[in-house]
Design a protein around this nucleic acid. Structure first.
Lengths: 146, 146
DNA sequence: CACCTTATTGAGACTAAATCTCAATAAAAA
DNA sequence: TTTTTATTGAGATTTAGTCTCAATAAGGTG
């Protein structure tokens, strides 16, 4: 089964489990959002909808994105500068971010040792760890020179 | 020299360096903000101003907090739920946060091994590391039980 | 299939947080 | 003391997101 179909099934199951209905709008948003390769925010999704002449309103976008988050298909990232940022999570390994303070370039990385240490810290303080955010901010290779 | 006086000097130097002026309003905000022990947001600062009958407007609060950030006296934390959050940074060790997803309790911690690993990661990707945010989200000891 | 219940939608009003405008004021340099 | 120019406050404005409610449509049931 293709990755997209599996993701769609996950979405459908999440909806059913919560007595929610699969609608044209949700299907359209699902396809649009899941095909995005980079970070995006709600307004960008809205723009793409207009460009493609899809019939999904602003209110619905703002209502469905959190549903996709709950279904574990996308995740909200905390590196917001005003607007809520999202990225596709489905079928992707967890990763953290290096962010350039000059050009805003985002590089993804993963470090297992840090993840282990994080779990140890949580345990030490009696926390049950659900999630984490780690963002390293600095100047990228290119911007460092200038 | 007292810690507060040193911080004030830092503030004054930052202002002079940027051709900015020390004003009554900035002095008042400096004192108010630097005495805060916990995380705070702009509206909370505004409330405290009203309670103390200080003469500082909303616009000025929103203008001066970023100046205090640039002067390295406070830092903006990214765990915002809508509003921009700040905390005093001056004279405090860097630390990261454990946040309870139920009661929003914040626990500060510091882990040197992680900091070293972070620097290694930055180097690996050619970044000059300026700052980082790490937030572990989960259920705290108390909320875990319920 | 037809019916019925109820979740969902869209348009636009509304809200909250933050920013902008511009004339009046006050720092600090001259 | 005068002059220059950064800063301020009041309120208008913007931005991002939420809310309302009548109309619609999903999807279970007979």
């Amino acid at each position: 089964m293709s990755i997209m179909k599996e993701a769609l099934k996950t979405f459908e199951e999440h909806l059913k489990l919560n007595k929610m209905r699969m609608t044209q709008e949700r299907r359209q948003l699902f396809s649009l959002v899941m095909s995005l390769k980079t970070h995006f925010n709600s307004e960008e999704v809205l723009e793409k909808i207009k460009k493609k002449n899809l019939q999904v309103s602003r209110a619905t976008v703002y209502r469905v994105l959190p549903v996709l988050v709950k279904a574990n298909l996308i995740q909200q990232s905390l590196l917001q500068e005003g607007q809520a940022h999202f990225e596709v999570k489905w079928n992707k390994d967890h990763h953290d971010h290096l962010i350039c303070s000059v050009c805003n370039k985002i590089i993804e990385f993963k470090d297992n040792t840090i993840e282990i240490l994080q779990r140890e810290i949580a345990t030490k303080y009696g926390f049950y760890l659900e999630d984490h955010v780690m963002e390293l901010v600095g100047k990228c290779k290119t911007c460092k020179k200038n």
